[in-house]
Design a binder for these strands. Structure first.
Lengths: 189, 189
DNA sequence: AATTTTTCATAGCGATCGATACGAAACCTG
DNA sequence: CAGGTTTCGTATCGATCGCTATGAAAAATT
């Protein structure tokens, strides 16, 4: 999982996986069928072990604003964990791919779209509860938040620290409707 | 350039380049030395022809807020041009790479860092002119804006339309300090 | 026009890709 | 302990990678 996370699907060779797992090629293929299946297993494992913060944040019994804050702050941490590759596997795994790996790229795209849909769902709930203005476009704002998280993933990959990502998240939160004054990116935090 | 933009550096094979350019292998190597040099030529061409909006926006004699607005709106257009691959080559070109292509990944990272630095420079100028509060962290806000643009690049790659990207940009602008009320993501736009 | 020089496309180089055939070692059964 | 079966590591498969040597066609010079 770490190798796919770091180098992406195609750039991770079986030789690297073999060495990392300490397995012989037939053992790998007996256990995982082929490289594509192994990658999909890594995806589900990543989803379960590394980004639980997202589901936690979106399902917590807190205000919509607090839920979004937890979502972005969780991303800041998850994307810059020490000892882990920077960013999000769903972004780094196969943003660009050869025609042969189009299926993998599409699957990762589906994961990203799923995240955005989950955000939109939470926003719609918040709007129904009166946390958000009625005039707000839930889908548009979800696309903004998903975009910010994707951007954080790239910033993390470029070496941004958890503090820098937190400031970025805090800045992004200032775009939330109903904010009287900007709170993010202050040098006094 | 389009091939590298679409598939990334490593996933673009010489066979694809050969067919697209209508050249034989020796012609390619006579003209561009090797694949890496060809990619770097594509990078500089991309920089000159596709993302002039950024330099235009940052150097225009307008308010800081207007400059940032032009920057994000320019990105919305540039990342979703019809007939062009979605997103930004500097992001898609080699976000994840094999160890052999680390030099390419580092070069793209340098381009991204350069963009962020250019934004920070413009923000610092704006702060000196009184456009931005003194307490604002220029670097932190630049990281936010660069992150939003990177996120827009991924959203574009996932099929976001220019309108959706404009709404995203408008939403991101609401995080600008000194904004009384949120203007973005309204369903009435 | 004959000959030399240059240009250039084909064919193939070594290396590596993902994936597997095959022989040896280990293990259970008689 | 012998025989039969399973397990498993090595060695290698065909395909493709980036790249280049070589022979034929074209151009330039006598």
């Amino acid at each position: 999982m770490h190798l796919f996370w770091e180098h992406g699907y195609e750039a991770t060779s079986l030789a690297m996986l073999r060495e990392a797992m300490g397995l012989t090629p037939p053992q790998i293929y007996n256990a995982f069928t082929d490289k594509e299946t192994l990658f999909r297993k890594a995806l589900t494992r990543y989803h379960q072990t590394e980004i639980g913060f997202a589901l936690d944040a979106l399902s917590a019994p807190v205000s919509t604003r607090e839920a979004i804050r937890r979502l972005l702050m969780g991303a800041a941490e998850a994307y810059s964990r020490p000892g882990k590759p920077g960013g999000c596997l769903f972004v780094s795994g196969a943003l660009a791919a050869s025609p042969q790996a189009q299926a993998i790229a599409d699957e990762l795209k589906a994961y990203r779209k799923g995240s955005e849909a989950a955000i939109a769902e939470r926003l719609a709930k918040g709007q129904a509860m009166g946390d958000l203005p009625e005039g707000l476009s839930v889908d548009g704002f979800a696309k903004y938040l998903a975009g910010v998280m994707n951007g954080m993933s790239i910033q993390a990959r470029d070496g941004a620290s958890v503090e820098e990502l937190r400031i970025l998240a805090q800045t992004a939160l200032a775009a939330l409707p109903g904010q009287g004054q900007n709170q993010g990116a202050s040098s006094k935090e």
